[in-house]
Amino acid sequence: MEIRTDSTSLDIDRHEGNLIKELRSSSTKPVTEPSGWLSEDLKRNIFLTTVDNVLNWGRKSSLWTETAFTACCTFEFISLSSSRFDIARFGMEVLRSSPRHADLIITAGTLTWKMAPQIKRVYEQMAEPKWVIAMGACGITGGIFADSYSVVPGYNRILPIDVYIPGCPPRPEALLAGIELLRKKVEKRSFLQG
């Protein structure tokens, strides 16, 4: 169904409902994170270490975060981004409001099915290469709302997650540990895998 400016609000609601239903029925299983690029075979056979090192150094030193924060874990992230915990040392202090500038999405908070299409769309509009951190119990499994009809049981139903950070909410230190893990993962990337 096409949405136009002269569509009634009922039409728009119905269109949105259909989108959500479609997404919900198509994402019953977790999205597997494509881990082919982590295999060691290619690395052993082809030596491109310097190029990879330079590229990965650049990528891991400027992980810009998309501001797509859905619930309360956000406050731990805000705390992390301010002076006490200071993610500026990782070159991450730039929070982008446009997915075109961002290469990391931190899923801070409970995700409802109503919000799920938007988050998926924002992720799809981000530039390559992109990474996702699932933050908190709700981000991983849906947390205490896992049985609810309206809550997505874990972001991995709609996005491929790179790093999981447990906690309800995780302390900023835990988030720092997760970011460290992600940086290690970025280091392993080789441009041959695309």
Partner: peptide
Amino acid sequence: VKYEPYECGLETI
């Protein structure tokens, strides 16, 4: 989807 306009994750009306 990537080349569509960005409207906070919503479709443009």
